[in-house]
Simulated assay, not measured.
Amino acid sequence: MLLAAPAAAQTASGPEPDQDSVTIYRCSDSQGRLLALRDSPCRPGERQELVRMQRPQDPPPQPARPAPAATPAPAPAPGREVRIVTVQAPQPMYECTAPDGTTYLSGTDAGNARWVPFWAVAYPHRPHPRPPAPPPGGGHAPPAGPRPPHTGVVVPAGGTWVRDPCVLLPPEELCRRLPDRRYEILRRYHDTTPSERQALDREQRDIDMRMQASCPGY
């Protein structure tokens, strides 16, 4: 202990640190076990070691930041775009009835036209019989017998064009009928002549256009 004390005193009285460094005192026991780290000399009887460390310094001042550039004025909001959507009103569809009782669809209330002749009863022309001659010696002639009946003959006497009657279909009924008619066209397509197929093609295109305009949910 007598030898350690002068060494500890000598270590503690070492040169004064400059202003840019700091001294840390490492205090340990006789067996070298660390007891404490201090910024002042160790207690008597403790082994002391000095550790020189660079004193923390403030970082150099940063250069002045340039003034932020003026924020450009926001671009004016674009004008509100207004779109006008014109929706085509559903086209009407009519159900027409033919003379034989069958029904068909038509785009107008004028059904198919047919010629209906007018019939009249004609009677053949017969000359009137001559009255009988008076009897000899004067007096009145006997009365004539009954005239024979005239038999009439039915002959055409002109005619007129007549159209099949048609009724307007409600939109719900129309949207139900159009798919059925398109299915019927597809079913009959391969059993028809080329000229009939052209007519069926036109009818199917018309049905597709009507369904797209009037029945978007089907």
Rank of each mutant, 00 (worst) to 15 (best):
M1I: 04
L3Q: 08
A4Q: 15
A4P: 00
A5T: 14
P6T: 07
A8Q: 13
A9P: 01
Q10G: 12
Q10I: 07
G14E: 12
E16S: 03
E16D: 10
Q19A: 13
Y25V: 08
A36L: 10
R38G: 09
R38M: 08
C42F: 03
C42G: 02
P44Y: 10
P44K: 09
G45A: 10
G45W: 07
G45P: 00
G45I: 05
Q48S: 10
M53W: 05
Q57M: 07
P59W: 03
P59L: 13
P59D: 13
P60K: 08
P60W: 02
P63F: 04
A67Y: 05
P68D: 11
A69M: 08
A70N: 06
T71V: 15
T71H: 06
A73M: 02
P74A: 14
A75L: 13
R80D: 12
R83M: 07
I84Q: 13
V85Q: 04
Q88V: 13
C96H: 02
D100V: 10
G101S: 01
G101L: 04
T103N: 08
Y104M: 05
S106C: 00
G111Q: 04
W115G: 01
W115F: 14
V116A: 07
W119I: 01
A120V: 11
A120P: 00
V121R: 09
P124F: 03
P124V: 04
H125E: 13
P131V: 05
P132Q: 12
H140R: 12
H140V: 04
P142A: 14
P143I: 02
A144T: 08
G145Q: 10
P148E: 11
P148W: 02
P149H: 04
T151C: 00
T151I: 07
P156M: 11
A157G: 01
A157Y: 06
G158M: 02
G158S: 08
G159K: 03
G159N: 05
W161C: 00
V162R: 09
L169G: 02
L169C: 04
P171R: 07
E173C: 00
C175T: 12
C175D: 03
R176Q: 14
R177E: 07
R177N: 01
P179F: 03
R181F: 00
E184T: 05
L186I: 00
R187M: 05
Y189G: 03
D191G: 10
T193W: 03
E196I: 01
E196Q: 15
R197K: 14
Q198Y: 05
Q198F: 06
A199R: 15
D201R: 10
R202E: 13
E203R: 08
Q204Y: 13
Q204I: 05
R205F: 01
D206P: 00
Q212A: 15
Y218S: 11
